[in-house]
Design a protein around this nucleic acid. Structure first.
Lengths: 215, 215
DNA sequence: TGTAGACTAGACTGTACAGTATGATAATTA
DNA sequence: TAATTATCATACTGTACAGTCTAGTCTACA
């Protein structure tokens, strides 16, 4: 009972962990592809190569499986995003700042406009009213954690005197927002599985516009 | 048959139009509240105060009803957004531009972070992979049509010499994007029905940051 | 080697739902 | 008023699905 309410609370044998992972992987694929309602437990069991009985042994209800899948996914995303794209290289000129921002933006675009990320966000948005618990992790990730590296970068630039103010919430958002808008317009609101990404030139234009706003 | 494939193609009696509207209104409420799958045709018929038979007389299938609801909703949104928030008042100073931008942003935030708009966008995002047809209208609305008034405003400012470049796609996006990000973060990814709106001060900060980017 | 627990296959239950059918009643029109 | 058409209430069909049950097989380990 307790293991199905919070899978990680009780430690399991390696075998059990593997089975659970196997189930979660299949469930993830189907939930992200079809959405919560249309992904049936029969289909998930089949896709996982597992009997229905076993499925229900690890997850007492579909809702628990769904929540666990999303929880695992957002945590995973956290950790693969956190490894700061650029190390602590000092920023000593406007030109260097521009180069770093461009690198940051390019990698961010690659990440947030990937089909997997779009699919994750889509099912999250669709189901969040019925599963308010899953909103927590994600909100901090999307804008908070996601722009932590950017914050660091701009703070360095400020400390080096390249820009005159420390970065505020609004400044961070000013940089990130255009790319989130592409995510919304070309990823989430669009039938195609592979979202169209902004060209390098467009990204560069955004970087320059942003820099123009910083004194 | 033809009337159910494209309701507007065949003209109907006033009575029929009213019934259809009655059905659509109820369907809209339920689809936006529950999503496509969870809104049942029985429930829709009940909510519309109409027998199931009548429902199927006007819409031969659930999918058609859904598409028609979204089509009607986006068209409606178009037309209520189009009435330019501000008329053709000339912009002759930086200060005037700031005031107009603030008015624009405030009204945009009010519109785009309303519970109805968020609900519409949520179901649209959820179902667009299965109904690619509905993406068309909306994409042009969200960024294209939605920022037409902004484009006009900035063009005036440019013609008056208040800013030195005509507004580009990217400049328009730079202004709108932070507010779209609030829509994403505080509206779509959040369980609460009433999204939290940015304060006047925050909006003002964004307007000033944007202006700083314009030479 | 024997036993406990994991696992499988597949049948079963109850429910919800899309869409159809029926037969009667109300509204419209000729 | 007669005939036609819209609408209603409700029952029905077939299907899909969440979750349970049974009976047997495999695996690990004492």
């Amino acid at each position: 009972m307790s293991e199905s309410e919070d899978p990680q609370a009780v430690e399991e044998s390696a075998r059990a962990r593997a089975k659970r992972e196997q189930i979660r992987a299949a469930a993830q694929r189907l939930f992200l592809e079809l959405g919560y309602e249309r992904a049936s437990m029969d289909a998930i069991a089949r896709a996982a190569g597992v009997s229905k009985q076993t499925l229900y042994h690890y997850y007492a209800a579909k809702e628990q499986l769904f929540v666990d899948v999303l929880r695992a996914l957002t945590i995973e995303r956290f950790q693969q995003e956190a490894p700061a794209v650029f190390a602590e290289q000092p920023i000593t000129s406007r030109r260097e700042l521009e180069v770093s921002l461009l690198a940051y933006a390019t990698s961010a675009v690659e990440h947030i406009l990937s089909p997997e990320y779009v699919a994750l966000l889509r099912t999250l948005i669709a189901e969040v009213p019925r599963f308010p618990q899953i909103a927590g992790h994600f909100r901090s990730s999307l804008i908070g954690q996601g722009s932590a590296a950017l914050n660091l970068l701009l703070t360095h630039a400020w400390q080096a005197g390249v820009i005159t103010q420390p970065p505020s919430e609004e400044v961070l958002l000013l940089f990130v927002a255009p790319f989130l808008s592409y995510l919304l317009a070309d990823g989430l609101i669009s039938g195609s599985a592979e979202p169209q990404k902004p060209s390098t030139e467009v990204i560069q234009t955004h970087v320059r516009l942003f820099l123009a706003a910083l004194t």
